[in-house]
Structures are given as structure tokens and as C-alpha cells.
């Protein structure tokens, strides 16, 4: 076999399967989004942009977008700061790092559905351990996920618990891969720790930081599992993000056409982020090739 034929033989099955399982459903989804789709009957009337207009005039959709937006802003900030602080602390204790790091990574292996369930356990209002500890230090029990004011915070606490280890691990890997020369030269110049951090570490870490933030944003925009188990969007719609809104439209109220339209609206910020991510990976690949 020639080289060309071998390579085609190796690649074609993958490409064919991906086209079949990704591209085809995507087009199918577009056709559904422009129909008044009723699951009980075989033929559906054409809706044009009707479904999109219905979604875009639904105040619940904007509320869901707001919830997703709050989660994006708060989680990105908290997870990034906590993750970076933890990574920097672990850098300071090189010997015992190997002991603590694997333990600190455990949350991100826990099934998100289980995180939601564990949230119900530890935040249990009457006799959960967290309210008990609050009582011990003289604070009244809080309503947590049952309270319209605290529910979103409870969701975010659990999500920060689950995802900060990912941010920490990635930033730590980035920190460990930084060259030592710049540090040696600023030490000679007598820079203090703060200056070193802001003028050497942060700028050199920038590509890793960007990658982490994009990967986290992609996940946050699709947040679903923990909320489904913990609050199902409630109380009211106080913890309903875009993906749950879409799911409920389609699979609780059975408006498949509107659900497709909502899904495509979520697709817009996601594809922008993915494009950024792929661009960054491409640049990194070019750099690696140049080094070779």
C-alpha cells in the first residue's frame, strides 16, 4: 500500500463516524428548530423563526441566561483565585506536595450527580453537618438550597468544590513547567516576592491561565447535573441555568422545536469559546514544532 492509501485507510473510518454522529444530528436539530414540532403526530408545520422568537421573548430564558452569567462570573473568579493560591502554596512545599496533590484532586473524579446528592446530605437543613456546625458557633440554621436567596450560592459552593482542583492542577502543571532563568535573574536584581509574582510568574503563566479559563467557561455554560439533582432549578427558577431551561422545555413540556432553538442559542457563546481554544492550541502546536 502506498503512504497515501494507508493514511486514508486510517483516517476515513473516524471522519465518517464523526460526520454521522455529529454533523448529521446537528443538521437534523436545525430542521427541528424551524418546525412546530409535536411529538405525538408524524407531520409538523413549518415555523420559520417562530421558535427562536418565542425563546427570545420568554422572560424565563433571560433569567436562565442571567443565572448562567452569574455562575460564569462568580465561579471563574473564585475558582481561579482559589486554584492559583493553592497551586502557589503547593509550590512552596515541594516535599509533601506529592502527598497532598492526589488527595486534593479527588473531587473532580466524583460523578457530578453524586456531587448534587452529597450537597443534599451535607446541607440538609434540619440535621445536616453544616447547619450543625453553624449552630455550634452560634449561627442559626440556614435554608441553603431551599432558600431562593441562598440556593444559587449553595449550587456554586458545590461546583467550586468540584472544579477548583482542576484549576489548581492545571495551573500547578503550568507553574512547574516555567523556566527558572527569569527567576534567577530577578533575584540578582533584588525583586521582592510580590514583584516576582506580578512581573514574572503571571505573564509567563498567561497561556495556561487562558486555557484554564476557556475550559472552565465551556463547562460552566453547560452546567446541568449538580443542579438537576440538588434543586431542579428551584426554588422557583432561581437556580435554572440555560441548559436546564432547554432540557425542561424539551423533555418536561415536550416542546421539542423550542428546545432545539434554545440549544442553538446556547451554541453561540460556546462556539466562540471553542474557536478561541482551538486557536490557542494551534499556536502552541506551532511553537512546539518550531522548538523541534
Amino acid at each position: 500500500m502506498t503512504k497515501k492509501r494507508t493514511s486514508l485507510f486510517l483516517v476515513i473510518p473516524t471522519v465518517a463516524i464523526l460526520v454521522l454522529i455529529v454533523i448529521f444530528p446537528m443538521f437534523y436539530s436545525i430542521t427541528v428548530a424551524v418546525q412546530n414540532y409535536d411529538i405525538r403526530i408524524p407531520n409538523h408545520t413549518f415555523a420559520g423563526l417562530g421558535n427562536f422568537i418565542k425563546i427570545l421573548t420568554d422572560s424565563n430564558f433571560y433569567h436562565a441566561a442571567l443565572v448562567t452569567g452569574i455562575m460564569l462570573a462568580v465561579e471563574l473568579a473564585v475558582e481561579f483565585v482559589l486554584g492559583l493560591v493553592l497551586a502557589m502554596l503547593l509550590m512552596q512545599i515541594p516535599l509533601s506536595r506529592k502527598l497532598y496533590q492526589p488527595i486534593l484532586l479527588i473531587p473532580m473524579m466524583v460523578m457530578p450527580v453524586v456531587v448534587g446528592y452529597v450537597g443534599r446530605l451535607v446541607f440538609e437543613i434540619r440535621s445536616g453537618p453544616i447547619n450543625y456546625l453553624l449552630n455550634v458557633i452560634g449561627i442559626q440554621s440556614l435554608q441553603w438550597h431551599a432558600s431562593p436567596h441562598l440556593a444559587l450560592i449553595t449550587v456554586m459552593i458545590l461546583r467550586v468544590w468540584r472544579w477548583t482542583p482542576f484549576v489548581m492542577a492545571t495551573l500547578l502543571a503550568g507553574l512547574l513547567s516555567l523556566p527558572v532563568e527569569p527567576y534567577e535573574s530577578v533575584q540578582v536584581d533584588g525583586a521582592n516576592a510580590r514583584q516576582t509574582f506580578f512581573y514574572i510568574t503571571l505573564p509567563m503563566l498567561k497561556p495556561v491561565i487562558t486555557l484554564v479559563i476557556i475550559m472552565r467557561a465551556l463547562e460552566i455554560l453547560q452546567a446541568f447535573d449538580i443542579i438537576y439533582v440538588l434543586t431542579m432549578g428551584g426554588p422557583g427558577i432561581s437556580t435554572m441555568p440555560l441548559s436546564l431551561y432547554t432540557y425542561l422545555k424539551g423533555f418536561r413540556y415536550w416542546d421539542i422545536g423550542q428546545a432545539s432553538a434554545a440549544a442553538w442559542l446556547i451554541m453561540i457563546p460556546l462556539s466562540i469559546l471553542v474557536t478561541f481554544f482551538v486557536k490557542m492550541m494551534e499556536e502552541e502546536e506551532v511553537e512546539v514544532e518550531e522548538k523541534k
Binding site: L18, V22, P25, M26, Y28, S29, V32, L218, L221, Q222, F224, L242, S243, T246, Y247, G250, F251, I256, A259, S260, A263, W264, I266, M267, L270, L273, V274, T275, F277, V278
Partner: peptide, 16 residues
């Protein structure tokens, strides 16, 4: 880029 394909977009066509 497909690695980041959002399941929420795929659930409706896959269900049908």
C-alpha cells in the same frame, strides 16, 4: 473542537 460539542445541543436530535 468536537471534544467540546455541547450535549445539550445533541439531546433533542438524538432523542428523535
Amino acid at each position: 473542537s468536537l471534544k467540546f460539542f455541547p450535549p445539550v445541543v445533541a439531546i433533542v436530535p438524538y432523542f428523535l
